[in-house]
Amino acid sequence: MDHSNTSYAVEADHLVKAFGKERAVDGISLKVPKGVVYGFLGPNGAGKTTMIRMLATLLKPTEGQAKVMGYDLAKEADEVRQSISLTGQFASVDEEISGRENLIFIGRLVGFSRKEAKQRADELLAAFNLEDAAKRQVKKYSGGMRRRIDIAASIITSPELLFLDEPTTGLDPRSRNEVWTVIRALVKNGTTVFLTTQYLEEADQLADLIGVIDRGVLIAEGTSAELKSSIGVRSLIIEFEDERDLNKAESIFEGMFTQTPEVDRGRLSISVTMKDQSKAAKAIGELANHQIAVKDFSMQQPSLDDVFLTITGKPAKEKGGEANGE
């Protein structure tokens, strides 16, 4: 079998994973081209972790098959493991030992000599800004540091395909940006990244291709732009100087848009949802025609809830019991 000529990092064909009667992943087929970031987007309990665990050889699919880096998941699990790395949703390092020891430990497991493993560990600690915490037990790390040591442990041998399960859930914006920087650097280096997230913004920022999963089913797939235009809905939010202007604007907009505008009297703002962005300019222009002063206005991205609302016709709802985050 020749593996080098496949252009896909992941080719899943109708994967199913059933736990008892529940089908956590219910027939997902997808293709991830090499060298891209694939964002797997879905709410709690959608089946993201289950999908990743199958692709990383940790769970046997109930039905279906998949190729990872050209290797058959069922028949060539060892070869698959040679080409992938996994950073699980919950710390996939040993929290009882120090960060440096973790890196040396994994380094030795993947075949480095003692000296090489130490060198590699120090190199990664420096690159991930973890030198000061190198000798501390991982359980004493902050959430952002944990994520970084976890990802560092995953790239000890520069994997061809890296699975990241909710790499930024629970992180503050600064730590989240640090993780994003790492992911971008990895992709630049040619690693394919398969990440899961609950945030459309994250998928938007990082992913070349986005798959939306709900209740074990892939309900939409495409680039960020494609998804957004298919979802369509965006909100225009306008703030006013005083209540008189707000009231006038409300009556003008009532005729313009199919959906009734939402008015926030406390913040003196009005928000309207629209499919077509050009309508925003028209709305602002109409206000100017009526000499209504606009204090500020902004366009809001559709949220994950909007995505679900539009695609499934019902709000994203938690299916399983487990809460998110660490």
């Binding site: 665990r53 990383a56 050889t57 940790l58 060892d78 493991r81 040679q82 992938i84 790395s85 996994l86 699980g88 949703q89 919950f90 710390a91 996939s92 390092v93 040993d94 929290e95 994994i106 497991l109 993947v110 442990a153 995953s154």
Partner: peptide, 13 residues
């Protein structure tokens, strides 16, 4: 129960 076991099982060892 810990996530680190998932890593062990996904390593080529």
């Amino acid at each position: 129960e810990k996530g680190v076991f998932d890593r062990f099982r996904s390593l080529p060892i």
